[in-house]
Design a protein around this nucleic acid. Structure first.
Lengths: 186, 186
DNA sequence: AAATTTACTTACTAGTTAGTAAGTTTTGCA
DNA sequence: TGCAAAACTTACTAACTAGTAAGTAAATTT
């Protein structure tokens, strides 16, 4: 029962959060960009917390649907699909990932959004852990230590690489991805 | 010829940038926290751009002094010293590194600050590259691919790990560090 | 001792922020 | 057709933002 307008607001807000962060997300910018008034945005999202929470929730749901759609595919295909989705953020306005944005805005986030972001990151890390375990079992991935440790490294490296790419260019992200894949190769 | 007050402002501003980011850094918060008036801060740093630029410059200088002080030490000692300095950010108010903060605030930064942050990150990456080259030559480090690629991975992983630690706890940073060191061991 | 510079305070501006209350238009349903 | 609910607009508030102009006190220099 979500209205079209509400979806459009949330989509634009998502883009803005990934570009300028939650604190700099403003009702004015959203309303003017969508050709409506301030109060219209407040009608759909009474408080900024409501809006921010919906933005993170939607991105979380997107991730869940994304991984579900990948079920049945090989570990390598899953990894590539994830890496490509991150690369699209980069090419589409130098955005950073929602989790990275939430983490750097952390001190300014209401508790509800913090909790949602924490759950989100945990699930991404778990997904990567299983991916690495299965990939190793199938002989397509290789790494030292635990799958959880390697998953922690990979998730943080990708989030950091998206951000650093803003400063020193998109090639940085590609270099990090290439290094990660090289190290995973048996 | 830097006054004490100016240093105190810059130090507090550094802490605030690493906690809440450049856009949320406010003259009011600084002045009230230092027991002075708004205009007093503007006396030392006429514009916010001046203040923000000085903050990044100072952190950059700190890094340069830090690496200079480590000259002569072994590659392992240098790496450990760097990792410890990052861990102190975490333990001292869950700060993130200046480069990571600059990268996530990138879209809101004036050009001068962007450029300074870009140079800063390039130098950190170069420092890591040389560290890895020397460590490999000395037989204390091991890795696949180029030193530059591995340096890109490590710098982004550490920046991302500091941020993710805010969401899922400081152990995440320690896990990433442990994984990195494990993989470097010959 | 006088003049000048440094380091502020007081008091203000113009613009932006999230948020609200009340009124109006549009839409879907009975 | 008429009613009700949904989706808005208008008009506003209180708080905050960076930044400025003018005045003051203290330190430094001449």
């Amino acid at each position: 029962m979500r209205s079209e307008t509400k979806d459009k607001i949330a989509e634009l807000a998502t883009e803005l959060v990934q570009q300028v962060g939650y604190p700099s997300l403003s009702y004015q910018q959203i309303s003017s960009q969508l050709g409506m008034k301030n109060a219209a945005v407040h009608y759909h999202f009474p408080s900024k917390e409501d809006l921010g929470l919906d933005v993170v929730r939607r991105d979380h749901e997107l991730f869940t649907k994304f991984t579900t759609s990948l079920e049945g595919q090989s570990a390598e295909e899953k990894l590539d699909a994830f890496l490509t989705s991150y690369q699209q953020l980069l090419e589409n306005g130098n955005r950073i990932c929602m989790i990275g944005a939430s983490a750097s805005d952390y001190k300014q986030l209401p508790d509800s959004i913090r909790q949602e972001a924490t759950t989100y990151l945990s699930e991404v890390k778990d997904w990567f852990t299983r991916l690495l375990e299965n990939g190793k079992a199938d002989g397509v991935f290789q790494y030292k230590g635990s799958a959880a440790g390697k998953a922690a490294l990979i998730t943080s490296a990708l989030a950091g690489a998206l951000q650093h790419a803003r400063l020193i260019g998109n090639d940085h992200y590609l270099a990090v991805v290439a290094q990660l894949k090289l190290e995973l190769k048996p």
